[in-house]
Each structure stands twice: as C-alpha cells, then as structure tokens.
C-alpha cells in the first residue's frame, strides 16, 4: 500500500498486475479483482480511470485530462479531489498501485 494522498508529492498510478475482469451494462461497470476475489461496481468516472490506466501509467493531471471535466459538468478542482479519493480507495483495494516520484 502506498502512502496517503498529498498534494506535496506527485504520484504515478498503474493497475496492479492481478487479473481484472470487467463487464459493462448501461454505463455501470463491474470489476472482478482476481487477487482479492472481490467484485466492485464502478461508475462512469471509475470506469474511465481504469480504462486510462490500462493504456499505461498516469499521474493525477493525466487522469484528469482523460476524464474531461467539462463533459462531466464538474468543476475541475472538485473533480481533482474526487479523483484523488477514488485513487486512494482503489489503492486500498489493491486494484491500482501508486508510486511517489520526487
């Protein structure tokens, strides 16, 4: 597990290497995490984050860009906070791994 979020450091995020299986219905995505055996529900934001991380590592700014705050109709700062909380939660669940860079 990585250290809690802090604005003082920039972290890069990647998906864990454990198998992730997904299905999507009506904009809701179900994620099966092979390492824990747990099934999780992701909303559209969560699903886009996982999609982006499948393409490669990303930091918070890169993930924010992928989410396109304007299209979501959420203020960028609010979305940033929500994204930070989401990544911390996904990290706790073992789905993503954050690494701190200087």
């Amino acid at each position: 597990m990585t250290v809690p979020s802090s604005t003082a450091v920039q972290r890069r995020w990647r998906l864990s290497s454990a198998p992730l299986l997904e299905v999507e219905w009506d904009g809701e995505r179900l994620l099966y995490h092979g390492a824990s055996g747990e099934t999780h529900f992701l909303n559209a934001t969560g699903a886009r984050v996982v999609e982006r991380l499948r393409e490669g590592d990303a930091d918070l700014d890169e993930l924010l860009a992928a989410l396109d705050p304007e299209s979501l109709g959420i203020a960028p700062e609010l979305l940033r906070d929500q994204l930070d909380a989401l990544l911390t939660r996904l990290d706790e669940l073992g789905i993503v791994i954050g690494t701190t860079t200087a």
């Binding site: 198998p19 219905w25 055996g37 099934t39």
Partner: peptide, 29 residues
C-alpha cells in the same frame, strides 16, 4: 431491473459465487 442490480442480486444469492472466483464472475455475468 437493471443488469448491474440483477448481477448484484445473483452474486449475493449464490451459494458459491466467491468460491468459484473468476469462473463465478464470468458465469454470473
């Protein structure tokens, strides 16, 4: 009923969803 809600109910109604792991997820989905 939405499929995601149905999935949740199926998984919670199964005797062995968690035990089957990936197979349980794929079969239920």
């Amino acid at each position: 009923l939405s499929r995601s809600d149905a999935f949740l109910l199926v998984a919670s109604n199964a005797f062995n969803y968690e035990l089957l792991g990936e197979t349980g997820f794929i079969t239920a989905a």
